[in-house]
Design a protein around this nucleic acid. Structure first.
Lengths: 249, 249
DNA sequence: CGATAATTTGAGACGTTTCAAAGCGGGTGG
DNA sequence: CCACCCGCTTTGAAACGTCTCAAATTATCG
């Protein structure tokens, strides 16, 4: 957690990236810019501390990022995760300090683009502009859904919701087929995301497993068997949620 | 909670409003626009349901508003509150549907300004533009702080944080002096804000009272006696928090 | 002043956390 | 290639915090 290995070797695997809708595959120019500012990181590398100036956007070219906050007594809450192909723009329009810490959850290639550069890109590329507007909106909606379950909501509904949300988002990037997807997270980290202890994440996951709703294989590969039941437990309507938290293409 | 009394009598008490920094007292033009679109509501009036189109901004001229979400089983979480003089712009830049419900927490005069109008106002009034940018940033920071405590954080730290945040925000509007301020909220509503049951809000408030950290008078008038102790319980640094969650003037 | 809503307090149930120990599993170095 | 080691998962048992239910008290509003 105090790891800070910054192997800032420019990444040349960018072309392998299957971009989500937020990073239109369109213009080579965009790819070029992302490539220029890309860096490779190990697991749990801290890209930015809370309180640092936030003057860049973060695009996960591969791997997962997290924006988190911590309490003095050590507890950590993950505010949002950034999946491959997604962009996190903390400072939508202001040059303030960051109220969250940015870190990698897995090995990751990250494009850290200065705001000035990104703004210029946005001006010259209408697709980027509209995509980002939509992205900001759905990000907020997702945070609100999670917040609702953090406040009112059992362990089961938090886990169920998280699985549904991550599945839907990964589908966009083609990283989820037939309800099967891999999470590069330990149960500890998943707990930091949904507001539960690692032990209770384990128990909850296994309880859902015993009921046949989902199953896990190896290190955090999840298979959703009964999406309807999972949605009931999460307390959401799948179609409504998709409209709410996935950016329209 | 199902109340929907819409007494849309245009409000002429606007001039009484002591505007916060978000609504620069400056141009009469702004006041005029707000006045044009202002309506008076009773307690618990629902201004917008979750899922409705969101094509307006909400400015609390007097009274408090809340943005909330509810679970199917009835639990409600208040995502954010809007204090007198503050503006809530859900759809910063997109014409989507709202992912939250907007309602009044008290009697309130609310300016509901269509986006098109507000956008024009923003273009012609630089102060509005920059104020709104700053407002958006601090709103997010506050939500993140609350989210952290919703996930990790005891009842005491949630209540303590809420009191500090509300006190700081009310100071801006001149509605808090020497740590004394009034909350137009029942303990039930406060519970919906901090993610606790009404009963536990009561217990926590009284426990803090017994320790001499704060006291309450009548219906939710709060007096903070020991801000330092309260900040410790909330797990924050007062100076840092103020920079983070209060818009620079 | 009476009706109604909100607060306060107690007691018990429930869900989650913590602590602890026992199984995997994957990676590394011998 | 095997054995070891370390981190992650799994499970149990007990402690803790919060919720629910219920009743008494206090405030508010008409």
């Amino acid at each position: 957690m105090a790891n800070l290995d910054v192997e800032t070797t420019p990444l040349d695997t960018l072309s392998q990236l299957e971009p989500g809708p937020h990073v239109p595959r369109a213009s080579d120019h965009v790819s070029q810019v992302l490539n220029t500012y890309s860096h490779a990181y190990g697991v749990a590398a801290i890209l930015k501390f809370e309180g640092d100036d936030s003057a860049s956007i973060y695009c996960a070219l591969s791997g997962w990022l997290a924006a988190s906050k911590s309490m003095v007594d050590g507890g950590r809450q993950i505010i949002d995760v950034v999946l491959p192909g997604e962009v996190m723009d903390l400072s939508s329009g202001y040059g303030h300090t960051s109220s969250v810490q940015i870190e990698t959850l897995s090995h990751a290639a990250v494009a850290i683009v200065p705001h000035a550069v990104w703004a210029r890109l946005r001006e010259t590329t209408p697709e980027i502009r509209s995509a980002q507007t939509a992205t900001n909106a759905v990000s907020l909606s997702r945070i609100f859904e999670r917040m609702l379950r953090l406040g009112k909501g059992t362990a089961e509904s938090r886990i169920a919701y998280a699985m549904i949300e991550l599945c839907m988002r990964l589908e966009v990037a083609g990283a989820c087929r037939n309800g099967t997807f891999h999470l590069p997270l330990t149960q500890q980290v998943l707990g930091d995301f949904v507001g539960l202890s690692a032990v209770h994440v384990c128990r909850t996951l296994r309880r859902l497993g015993r009921r046949g709703v989902l199953s896990t294989e190896g290190h955090m590969t999840v298979v959703i068997h009964d999406a309807g039941a999972l949605a009931d437990i999460a307390g959401i309507d799948l179609a409504y949620l998709r409209r709410e938290i996935i950016a329209a293409r």
